[in-house]
């Protein structure tokens, strides 16, 4: 049986791991490659590296970091942040990334998703969606969650699937940094509508939140950052707990 996935996210700035509370205050939490290797040993199923400042500062994601990670780590990983062209994707996949995630550039130019999935295959194109609830609507935000758009989240999720995305990384800006649990309702709605996997992100605070997002939230994978970085939850213990709760895990 296909397992649910636990995905630690490493937010990267200047080659170091950071995690922002609601994406604003940044704290330093160590060397990405070292941390990635530790997570892999603890049983992480996949890793995500997000160069969170890349879009804002118009920087290219760090190809050298990707090479170091790919050499060292034997589980799949996704790289995102400021990816806007075929050339960006080609460089990252060539360096050893298994998937790339696109966000702002896809909102600006939705045709990019078609282009990338045709060129590289849907399986390696993740579309990251940052969503915030405003005036009764879930709205897509870009640029690390700083810029609101008028694009409605659920409709956008459907559109990116139709355009060839292989997976969706759904971050609830309302839940991110709160440690109050994932956005289970929104995640379930999208997971039910789509045929591609959905990674839920934002709001993990305790082990029960993961159980909830896999059951109520119908997520295929759950992503978290700070609770893993600051060792509030150990991945190996989390997976044992989820397994006891009847969720299929790779142990």
């Amino acid at each position: 049986m296909l397992t649910k996935r636990i995905v630690p996210c490493l937010d990267i700035k200047d080659g170091r791991t950071v995690k922002g509370v609601n994406f604003v205050e940044l704290k330093d939490a160590g060397d990405p490659v070292e941390l990635a290797a530790i997570y892999s040993k603890q049983g992480a199923d996949e890793l995500v590296f997000l160069d969170i400042t890349a879009t804002v500062e118009k920087r290219k994601t760090l190809v050298n970091l990707v090479k170091r990670v790919a050499r060292e780590v034997n589980i799949p990983f996704t790289v995102g942040g400021g990816i806007g062209s075929k050339e960006d994707v080609s460089a990252l996949l060539g360096a050893g990334a298994d998937k790339v995630s696109v966000n702002s550039a896809a909102v600006r130019n939705p045709g990019l998703i078609n282009e990338l999935s045709q060129e590289f295959g849907s399986q390696c194109i993740v579309v990251a969606i940052d969503s915030k609830y405003i005036n009764g609507q879930h709205l897509v935000h870009t640029h690390g969650g700083r810029t609101p758009t008028e694009v409605e989240t659920i409709g956008w999720a459907l559109e990116v699937e139709n355009r060839g995305a292989g997976e969706i990384l759904l971050t609830s800006m309302d839940h991110d940094g709160t440690k109050g649990g994932f956005a289970n309702e929104l995640t379930a709605t999208i997971s039910d509508l789509l045929t591609i996997p959905v990674i839920a992100s934002g709001g993990a605070g305790d082990m029960g939140h993961f159980t909830d997002v896999f059951t109520t939230g119908k997520a295929d994978a759950a992503l978290a950052a700070s609770i893993f970085h600051y060792k509030e939850i150990d991945i190996d213990k989390l997976k044992v707990k989820l397994s006891e709760d009847g969720i299929t895990m790779r142990l």
Binding site: M1, L2, T3, K4, R5, D45, S122, Q123, G166, E167, S191, D192, L194, T195, I196, P197, K218, D220, A221, R250
Partner: peptide, 21 residues
């Protein structure tokens, strides 16, 4: 090919992506 049953919807996504035994 995804099975028709409605309740199987969230169990079987394609591609088969992730860890399996």
């Amino acid at each position: 090919v995804r099975p028709d049953a409605k309740n199987a919807h969230d169990q079987y996504k394609i591609p088969h992506m992730g860890w399996n035994r």
